Each structure stands twice: as C-alpha cells, then as structure tokens.
Simulated assay, not measured.
Amino acid sequence: MNEQSSNESKWTKIVRAIVMYLVAALFLFPFYIAVVYSLKTPVETAKAPLSFPVHFAWSNYSKAIEAANFFMALKNSLIVTVATVILAVLVCSMGAYVISRNNNKFYNFFYFLFMSSIMMPFQVIMFPLYKTWVNLSLLNTLHGLTISLVGVQIGYFCFLYVGFIKTVPRELEEAATIDGASRYRTFFSIIFPLLKPINMTIIVLSALGAWNDFVVSMVIVQKKAVSTLPLVQFQFFGEYTSEVNMAFAAILMSMVPIMLFYIFAQKYIIGGVTAGAVKG
C-alpha cells in the first residue's frame, strides 16, 4: 500500500513538473520570438521564422535607434512615467484619505464614482477627452498625456488606498491633533509614511501602466517631438511595408528599463494589494 502510494506521489510530481515547464515555455515563447526576430535579417526571418539566427544582425538595433529617434522617445517616456507616478501617488492617497475618514453620503458618492470608473472602458471617454484637450490646448503635450494617464488610473488606485487607510488606527491622528498638528501635517507626517507598502504598489503599477501605454498616448499625442516609446514602435508598421526586425529591436530596448524596475520592486506588489484589499 505504501509502495503504491509512493509511486502515485512520484507520478504526480512528474506530471506537475511537466505542466509547470510547459506553462513556463508558453509564457517565455513570446520573449524568444522577440529576441530571435530582433537579431535576424528580413530574408532569414522569411525563410525560417522560428529558428535561431545563423548570423546576428546587430545593425537592427542601431537602425531602430536612428529610425525611431529612440532616445528622444525614451526621454519623453521617462518624463511622463515619473510625472504620472508622482501625481498618482499624491492625488490618490490624499483623496482616499479624505474618503476613508468621512463616512457620509457625500464622500461615499465619490468613492462609488471612483469604483464605477474602473468598469468604464477608455473608448467611452476617448472622444470627449480629445475634444476637451483641444479646447484646453493640452493636445500633443507631455503634461496633457500625464494628466490623462493619471485620470485613467485614479479609480483603481483610490480603491486600493481606501482599503489600506482603513486599517490605519485613528488614534494616531487623534494624538497628532491633540499635539496641535494640522490636518495636512497629520497626513504627511503620520499617515503617509505608514502607507509605504501600498505606495510602492501604486508606484509599480502606475509606472508599468504609463510606460507601456499605447491607446491613451495615441489619442493625446500625434507629433513625433512628444511621442513616447510605444508610439515610435508603431511607426515600423506601415500600410505597404513593415520593418519587423527593427520593430522587435526597438521593443526589446524599450523593455529593458521597465523590466529592471519591475524586478527591483515586484516584491512590494503582492503585499500592498493584499493589504489594500483587507477592507474594501
């Protein structure tokens, strides 16, 4: 009986390991395609799309940098991402703090308004946003794009912040008020430092969203001078021709900064999201 149970356990582990390797290969396959295509010539890509390159075409990277004005787009992406992260953390944390500490119909209305925005697709507000930005002269500007990206993310981030702030004891604020601290000083000196786990989660999610955004950027930005990395990658695909190899080279180069950032900060995501979901 024990021997039979041991054999079943052994086969279960083998099957589980095979499934895990297959799933890992499935998720890693797109990265393999990106690397292989970026190192091939168009002729070699057409002859053997999935095979490893015989001769590495490193010139694809230099051509992609020149054709897409890569470093200008990299600068724009960095500016937009950093500004989006800072604005999202400040606006969402302060708004969520007020909502979580005032349990009445007025503030509950704004909370459910933020919740409803999570379920609203961007396509619903795309044309009104475009028209508004034209009237405000915010079209084709980095700050216009930054405000748009924060607006798209604000509902979900406020939801996370409200859940987390509700776990912070009110006694800390009452003690600060007794000591004569204003509400702003109480928030930034007492509450905000305690939000480090959820702050790091919001920073990572906001940075990933802003860096990889294509749909919102395509609506707000049409000029090359203010294009971000996802937009300049799109220019490799024309109506009659496509530079697939250079496109994948540009994609890989644009992935490096955000992947390094994600690897460094990924440990904060699960903890922050879990903590923020304790009280919703």
Rank of each mutant, 00 (worst) to 15 (best):
E3R: 14
E3S: 14
Q4L: 12
Q4Y: 03
S6H: 09
S6P: 05
N7I: 11
E8K: 15
E8H: 07
S9W: 00
S9A: 11
S9D: 07
K10E: 00
V15A: 06
A17M: 02
I18Y: 06
I18G: 00
V19R: 05
M20H: 01
M20V: 09
Y21W: 10
V23W: 02
A24F: 05
A24D: 06
A25R: 00
L26E: 11
F27T: 09
F27I: 10
F29C: 09
F29N: 06
P30D: 04
F31M: 07
F31T: 01
F31S: 04
Y32D: 11
Y32W: 07
I33L: 06
V36M: 04
L39T: 08
K40P: 08
K40D: 04
P42M: 00
V43N: 12
V43H: 12
T45A: 04
A46I: 13
A46W: 13
K47N: 15
K47F: 15
P49R: 08
L50H: 12
S51A: 14
S51Y: 15
F52P: 14
V54T: 15
H55M: 13
H55F: 07
F56N: 11
W58E: 07
W58S: 05
S59I: 09
S59N: 14
S59P: 15
S59C: 10
N60Q: 05
S62Q: 12
S62V: 13
K63H: 12
A64D: 11
I65H: 04
I65K: 04
E66L: 13
E66D: 15
A67C: 14
N69Y: 03
N69M: 09
F70V: 10
F70N: 09
F71W: 06
F71I: 03
A73W: 01
L74S: 10
K75W: 07
K75Q: 08
N76Q: 04
N76V: 02
N76S: 03
N76Y: 01
L78M: 10
L78Y: 06
L78V: 10
V80E: 02
T81F: 00
V82R: 08
V82L: 07
V82N: 06
A83C: 09
A83L: 06
T84E: 00
T84M: 00
V85W: 02
I86Q: 03
I86A: 08
L87T: 11
V89P: 08
V89F: 03
V89W: 06
C92W: 03
C92Q: 06
C92D: 11
S93L: 04
S93T: 08
S93C: 04
A96Y: 10
A96G: 13
I99K: 04
S100H: 04
R101Q: 09
N102I: 01
N103A: 14
N103T: 14
N104K: 05
N104L: 04
K105Y: 14
K105P: 13
K105E: 13
K105A: 15
K105R: 13
F106L: 14
F106N: 10
F106C: 12
F106H: 10
Y107R: 11
Y107S: 14
F109C: 15
F109K: 13
F109Q: 13
F109L: 15
F110G: 07
